[in-house]
């Protein structure tokens, strides 16, 4: 290991905005999002790839941003919870979580929303089993999951009817 710290240039598009930065290669993607560009909607829960609070979408796929290096997504398109709202209006998933009591403390919610978004992109009419399976990598310690599942189903219905 040489004494000097290596900095690597990256271009990462987050919620439609291009960020060009020089970063240390060991910088985790979640830290890039929260600390480097200041979008703190993405949460760090367990920091061990278990809880899913840090889930975001990279090039269409849900990922745990605590278990990716920012340099690994150089050139990619990232979507975080801040990118869901459009022109001051909440995304149908956010509305459904709000209306169906899909959260209590809200810590896991950004991850739940992003995992649900990836699910609905692939399957617009998931049954309870599909939802449980696709949200199995997201832990919630408040709701008991029932209202989260209800929220995803309500959002799916609204999106299908739009």
């Amino acid at each position: 290991m040489s004494e000097s710290i290596q900095l690597v240039p990256v271009s990462i598009t987050v919620n439609g905005k291009l960020y060009q930065q020089e970063i240390e290669p060991r910088l985790l993607l979640v830290e890039f999002i929260r600390e480097t560009i200041g979008l703190t909607g993405t949460h760090i829960g367990c920091d061990t790839s278990y809880c899913g609070a840090c889930t975001i979408i990279v090039d269409g796929d849900p990922v745990k941003s605590c278990t990716l290096l920012a340099v690994q997504v150089d050139g990619s398109e990232v979507l975080t919870v801040e990118g869901l709202e459009q022109d001051g209006e909440l995304h149908p998933l956010q509305q459904a979580f709000s209306q169906n009591h899909g959260l209590q403390c809200g810590y896991c919610t950004p991850g739940m929303l992003m995992s649900s978004l990836a699910l609905l992109a692939e399957n617009p009419d998931p049954d309870i089993k599909d939802i449980r399976k696709r949200l199995a990598g997201n832990v919630c310690r408040c709701t008991g999951y029932q209202n989260i599942i209800k929220s995803v189903q309500a959002a799916a219905k609204n999106l299908r009817e739009d």
Binding site: S49, G52, T55, V58, D61, P62, V63, K64, T67, L68, S115, A118, L119, R134, A136, G137, N138
Partner: peptide
């Protein structure tokens, strides 16, 4: 394997 997020990568 694991969960959807891990399977993505």
């Amino acid at each position: 394997i694991a969960d959807a997020q891990v399977r993505s990568r």
